[in-house]
Design a protein around this nucleic acid. Structure first.
Lengths: 138, 138
DNA sequence: GTATAGCCTTCCCCTTGCTGGAAGGTCAAG
DNA sequence: CTTGACCTTCCAGCAAGGGGAAGGCTATAC
């Protein structure tokens, strides 16, 4: 199948497929006489694998590592487990950050709704936030 | 004060200050005879404003909009409020996504810990996730 | 007087994960 | 024969800066 069909099947942009190829995540595909890329089922499953891993939060570099394990005939599962564990703690950190930020935004919005609009500043809403949120983690 | 001192005071990289200048967020500063940038207190408060707004999740483009209001002598607060409201719903969406992803990762990890290691695949952990998580939002 | 260290300047390239466009080739239908 | 939908390559760019080169300024130490 040609690149457009593969892209449609998996809901990605054809450009993305070429990009993965350039990054070494997909092998150089066979070519039709016209020069068009020609993909088979194993390309489809490899691409699906990449997309699933990405949805789990793995970077393309990490996915490349995992695929390289396969090329060497090794099982990457312990590597994957360590990556997933790192993912998990990173996600917990990000959720915590977002929850803190959310609370701060709610305070700002409530305050802004009853704010006297008289003082000369860029914007009292944001400027006041500086005083509230000094201790917040970056 | 020179760029390094301004950067130290606000805990940013001097490169970041030059970058904001190139983006038009900070005005072209005065220069010392040596050609070094020379900043005053109003630059410091403007930079602090940018950093606070950024911590609230605003993009540099949005911050630029807000600063442009000020240049026109208008009060940006209603614009800021709409941006903050959008931020809030975006944050809720992202928190929901992360919580779902977290649950999925926990399932994968638990399953992987007791997984028989006999089947021929890139990695049973990730491949199994494809079957679990089909309905998950991108 | 000079060396050396620590600033500063501009410049361009690197990152992540793509996306868009330009300029051109291929192929089937009307 | 032309139109339109594909495809090819390469170049350029987004956010939000970071890294480092090559060179200029200046204060302090010797």
């Amino acid at each position: 199948m040609r690149i457009g069909e593969l892209a449609d099947r998996l809901g990605v942009n054809p450009k993305t497929i070429r990009f993965y190829e350039a990054r070494g995540l997909l092998p150089d595909p066979a070519r039709l006489p016209s020069g068009y890329r020609d993909y088979g089922p194993e390309d489809e499953s490899r691409l699906a694998f990449i997309k699933t891993a990405q949805r789990l939060g793995l970077s393309l570099d990490e996915i490349g590592e995992i695929l390289a394990f396969k090329e060497r005939g090794e099982r990457p599962c312990s590597y994957v487990l360590s990556v997933l564990a790192a993912q998990l703690s990173d996600i917990d950190r990000r959720i915590g950050e977002l929850v803190r930020l959310r609370a701060e935004l709610v305070v700002l919005k409530d305050r802004a709704d009853q704010l006297a609009t008289g003082d000369a500043c860029y914007c009292g809403i944001v400027e006041h936030a500086g005083r509230i949120g000094q201790a917040t983690t970056r």
